[in-house]
Design a protein around this nucleic acid. Structure first.
Lengths: 339, 339
DNA sequence: CTGAAAGCGCTTACAG
DNA sequence: CTGAAAGCGCTTACAG
């Protein structure tokens, strides 16, 4: 059955389309009698305005686009949940796209979202993204853009982040304060700002506590996987037998490392302490449970979405919207992989 | 800057809008010369057809809607990944909604998707959904609908599932074959078909192997959480000290149970064997690692989406589309929580 | 209080 | 080979 249109209602009631339209929206200049008539019929016909027509007319889709590197991922799925939550509350729908950490895909997806005319875009950029023309072009087309977690500093838009550097500093300092003297770091890829910042926090912590920073103790993860954690733990045990602490860029990698150490009967934390980053759920249930930095994903999603929707609203009203950078608090979570 | 329209191109070239439209789409009845002219200008203006206008004209949005109970969930996020993957390949965008296992929300979201005129809907229903009028109404509006994993048998549409009953039978049988004689079951809520089927598979396995089915050994989880797993393991140890095996509806709950047993120094699998369901990633990294049933989420998402898109395509051509039920293979994964 | 007019940007069937 | 006409379904400014 085709769905009812304004025309259908107008015809059966002997009214014009504009009058029906205005009656449904409670325009003051329509008589109460017609309003009741129209609304009753609309209800029985289960009338719903055609979204395509409304979008074309108002040129807005009430839809926002989200690009994340990976959906099967504790942190990003938490952020996504926060975004959906806030968007639904404000009457917006969310289109989800996954970049697989690929710059090429990310570019294509930005283009897709632009073509499909979303009202705004939320993005956490891919590891391989080092050019930002696709992002600045979003902004120059007056489509609001908000970045979260994995951001590009040079792109001028609102951002929701944590202080990666400071959090990494705290994590590393905890290792030092509990007696570690030779601390390795499994870092993320070279590009993303947050893996740079976490590395810098690690380095600063060593320096501030008069420990020598040794580049050989820094291992670079490419895909931040469980397997990489295992691999580098193995390599570390080979190369540097006297290491007594590891600060790992992400929990999943840390869990890979723990698994390898367990298999080699290295005692955690007695022989080697490990601390992760992000507080994935599974970190609380492995043995030993993993000390880590809690990163508020759900909240980050909610706030990023809120900023975006506010900007969308303001720009519709031709009001200026000042870009904001919101920095969320992190928490040091101490469990059994450290003293 | 406002984006270019057909009119802009037509005006600058002194052509009419229809000619420009046809030139861009390579209609055979447009001269090569105009085609080149139009395409060149379109390129320099970075022309992109207005999606709202195209949607209104063709009444299709090239967008599908997905409703899942929860995004922060290994299985559902894997399915989502599969859906996005297939949709993108076929030129469709995906709107994601989360029902939080609430029937009320689910109904509202179906309505939202209908209003926003998605071309089709994929859904895994909430635990609390026992009426299906909102789903049959989708079908009666000729919007293609495909259900996956948590389905309603009575709704007539395509479905992608696993054989929960048979898989549960296999899991329970494994416990029996490795010596368990008193096997408890932590089941899911009463409504969802898959928790019923897993329960029935468990029961059948007991009966087929001449073990007595004791309803007191069946614990009903409401929210399928880690905490519930812990809670019921504790209760089980209180109520039935001689239990030697547990078949758990979902890995996350099983991991809660393992945690409790570990805390109480119950040896797994020597004292009690545990087997889960779904093969969450974390099941492979906890100690002891969890035996379970592997459920192919990514593949399920891809196939569900493929079925939906095929149905959308067929219905546009006014061809009949036969509903299909695809049953995916599961695998028994043996790890250290069972012999 | 109601409706004719114009228009959002596109597509397609038809006339010339 | 090109363009005038009609229309998708809605909204809003304006006339009466």
């Amino acid at each position: 059955m085709k769905s009812a249109t304004l025309k259908d209602i107008a015809n059966t009631l002997g009214l014009s389309v504009p009058t029906v339209s205005k009656a449904l929206k409670d325009y003051p200049d329509v008589s109460q009698k017609t309003k009741t008539l129209v609304k009753d019929l609309a209800k029985t016909l289960n009338y719903q305005p055609n979204a395509f027509a409304v979008s074309l007319r108002k040129s807005e889709s009430k839809t926002i686009g989200v690009i994340i590197p990976e959906t099967v991922h504790h942190f990003f799925s938490s952020v996504l949940k926060g975004i959906i939550h806030k968007a639904e509350e404000k009457g917006y729908l969310v289109i989800i796209l996954q970049s697989n950490e690929s710059y090429t895909l990310e570019k294509k997806q930005i283009d897709l979202l632009l073509r499909s005319k979303v009202d705004g875009i939320l993005i956490s950029i891919a590891n391989s993204t080092s050019e930002f023309k696709h992002l600045t072009s979003v902004i120059s087309k007056d489509i609001p853009l908000v970045m979260f977690d994995k951001i590009a500093k040079v792109v001028s838009c609102s951002k929701v982040i944590i202080n990666d550097r400071e959090a990494a500093y705290r994590a590393t300092t905890h290792l030092i304060k509990t007696g570690c003297r030779k601390i390795a770091h499994f870092r993320g890829p070279l590009m993303p700002q947050n893996s740079i910042d976490r590395f810098l926090g690690y380095k600063k912590a060593l320096e501030d506590h008069e420990l020598i920073y040794d580049p050989k103790l820094v291992y670079i993860c490419e895909d931040m996987s469980f397997d990489e954690g295992k691999k580098y733990a193995k390599q570390l045990l080979n190369d540097h037998k006297d290491v007594d602490g590891i600060f790992v860029n992400t929990d999943l990698v840390a869990i890979g490392a723990i698994t390898e150490l367990n298999e080699q009967n290295i005692k955690i934390p007695e022989d080697i302490s490990i601390i992760g980053f992000s507080n994935w759920f599974m970190s609380s249930v492995i043995s030993p449970s993993l000390s880590t930095i809690d990163q508020p994903g759900f909240k980050m999603g909610k706030i990023a979405c809120k900023l975006l929707l506010k900007q969308i609203k303001n720009e519709r009203k031709k009001q200026v919207f000042e870009h904001k950078t919101v920095e969320l608090k992190t928490k040091l979570i101490l469990r059994n992989s450290t003293f």
